[in-house]
Design a protein around this nucleic acid. Structure first.
Length: 255
DNA sequence: ATGGCCTCGGTTCGAGGA
């Protein structure tokens, strides 16, 4: 069983890449963020033709999340019931005995801004809700764009990024609060090479220079963490024409 | 160098992303 997350930065633009990637990497579950599509425009037929069921929660222009699955999708819930939010950032469902949460955490723009405050309030409610979800679903996987680099090892230039959005103490504390729920960062369950990232700015030839940050994560409950045998970042789609600025993260789970 | 790029909406620029 392979589960993956990918911020596609517009599914309208990136659908060909998503289909191409799934053909080469036929994961069981793929969580997408920043689909940027209203639900009436979601490419259901193309995704079903590729062998995937789909659940989605979208809006115009911004945000939007989806779960693609080769296995039946049940009990779909949109958003966090503990947090009133017009922005479509969370969708969850039960797949193959596992509760899957797909999340697009707010970016926060700059430390101290209104958007940063919204990010911290959003994360506070997210942690409270995930605590409930863990009690209800021992096999819980939380995949998505967290917009947080948990540690300096996840940042190409920790000095330049120190205290900046994605790296600030309050954001890292919010991430640690999720970890304190007993969720495991699947990527850090295994020895990894240094300087592996999931996002690179479109500017400055950042990808070619590997000026990246690791902000896309797969968090696993203890039950799933004990089944996890690998977690990797697939840089390949970032090398394609007209790429998303994020690239997929994949976790492998034993039966 | 308060930059640089990409997407969207909607028009040829501004907002938002990270």
């Amino acid at each position: 069983m392979k589960i993956a997350t990918w911020n596609v930065n517009s599914l309208k633009v990136r659908l060909p890449q998503v289909l191409q990637w799934l053909e080469a990497s036929p994961v069981d579950v793929l969580c997408l963020q920043e689909t940027k599509l209203t639900d009436d425009k979601f490419p259901v037929a193309e995704i079903e033709a590729a062998g995937y069921q789909v659940a989605f929660a979208g809006q115009k222009t911004y945000n939007g999340v989806a779960i693609l699955s080769r296995h039946p999708i049940a009990d779909v819930v949109k958003n966090n019931p503990l947090f009133e939010d017009e922005q479509q950032r969370i969708i969850s469902a039960t797949i193959a005995g596992m509760r899957v949460v797909c999340a697009y955490v707010p970016n926060g723009q700059t430390v101290g801004s209104d958007k940063y405050d919204y990010k911290l309030r959003w994360l506070d409610a997210f942690a409270r809700w995930l605590g409930d979800e863990l009690e209800a679903h021992p096999a819980l996987a939380v995949l998505g764009d967290y917009n947080i680099a948990p540690a300096d090892a996840d940042v190409h230039d920790p000095v330049a990024w120190a205290g900046q959005v994605l790296c600030s103490d309050a954001e890292r504390a919010a991430f640690e609060r999720l970890i304190a729920l007993d969720l495991k960062d699947a990527f850090r369950l295994f020895p990894q090479a240094e300087k592996l990232y999931s996002w690179w700015d479109y500017r400055q030839m950042a990808f070619r220079r590997n000026m990246g940050v690791r902000i896309d994560h797969i968090l696993l409950s203890p039950t799933l963490a004990s089944r996890c045998t690998a977690c990797e970042i697939d840089k390949l789609p970032r090398k394609w024409e007209q790429p998303s600025d994020h690239t997929p993260v994949i976790a492998t789970l034993a039966p």
